[in-house]
């Protein structure tokens, strides 16, 4: 699905004004009667320092503009389509982890200022690129057929020295290591997966109304049976 078609389905035709700059995109849109800001990446972007700074800056500008205009803080919709962090010596030298931490702080500022944060995964959400902003939202939704992972099973097999056949077999029973939005849903890392037939703008409105600023993912993972130890273990350490 090309960008325009996808955004028409998410916000309604004519209800979005987005500009792209390379693999970065931002702009404004409407969900129902509500104005929202949109920030994200497309075409499976590898997030490097340049894109990271654009994402952070876009979030800061939304916070700044709403405060300056005396407007109620608009929700921010993150469009996550990333193959992960850019892999390069130059990026590591400059401290790409620090650029990502800067995005995270900007997103946190927006949350503290009352902006509700919604992520829509379109395409891919992988590792560090996903951690940097998509996973920081209050509510995380995945479009059908989106790929979510840290590493594919073939690479995992090479690194862990466990045969691919065995991993594939175990992945049928456990959501814990194999790629898949469904697995992340079961573990509470993704709140909703939307269907191809669904009305996505309706889904957007509902998701936004469910966006709470507390981190409820461990409790959801427990409830859905995909992450049985996280919540109880944290509880032991938090209050023993």
């Amino acid at each position: 699905m090309n960008g325009e078609t996808m955004f028409d389905r998410l916000f309604g035709a004519g209800a979005h004004a987005l500009t792209t700059e390379g693999l970065f995109l931002c702009g404004t849109a409407r969900i129902g009667a509500q104005d929202v800001a949109v920030v994200g990446t497309r075409d499976h972007a590898a997030i490097d320092g340049t894109i990271a700074l654009r994402i952070a800056e876009a979030v800061l500008h939304v916070v700044r503009d709403d405060a300056a205009g005396g407007k109620p803080p608009r929700p921010i919709v993150f469009i996550a389509d990333t193959q992960g962090q850019a892999l390069s010596r130059h990026e590591e030298l400059l401290g790409l982890n620090g650029y990502f931490a800067h995005i995270v702080r900007c997103v946190d500022l927006a949350r503290r200022r009352g902006h509700r944060l919604l992520t829509v995964i379109s395409g891919e959400a992988v590792s560090g690129g996903f951690l940097a902003y998509g996973l920081m939202a209050d509510r995380i939704c995945a479009l059908p057929n989106s790929q979510v992972r840290v590493m594919d099973l073939r690479a995992m097999s090479r690194v862990t020295k466990i045969s691919l056949e065995r991993l594939e077999e175990l992945a049928k029973r456990s959501p814990v290591f194999a790629p898949g939005a469904e697995n992340y849903w079961r573990m509470g890392g993704i709140h909703e997966i939307w269907s191809e037939e669904g009305d996505w703008s309706e889904c957007m409105a509902t998701a936004l109304s469910h966006a709470a600023n507390s981190d409820d993912r461990a409790a959801i993972g427990l409830e859905r049976g995909g992450r049985l130890l996280s919540a109880p273990t944290a509880q032991i350490v938090a209050s023993s």
Binding site: V104, R105, D108, S127, F130, L131, L135, M136, R149, V150, M151, M156, V159, T160, P175, V176, F177, A178, N183, Y184, M187, G188, G189, D215, R217, A218, G221, R227, S230
Partner: peptide, 21 residues
């Protein structure tokens, strides 16, 4: 992230990030 439980590890780190803040 620990690859043997990569999905759980990625979500956990995201939770740690929010908790540190």
């Amino acid at each position: 992230v620990r690859l043997h439980e990569a999905n759980a590890g990625l979500i956990a780190i995201s939770e740690i990030m929010r908790a540190v803040l």
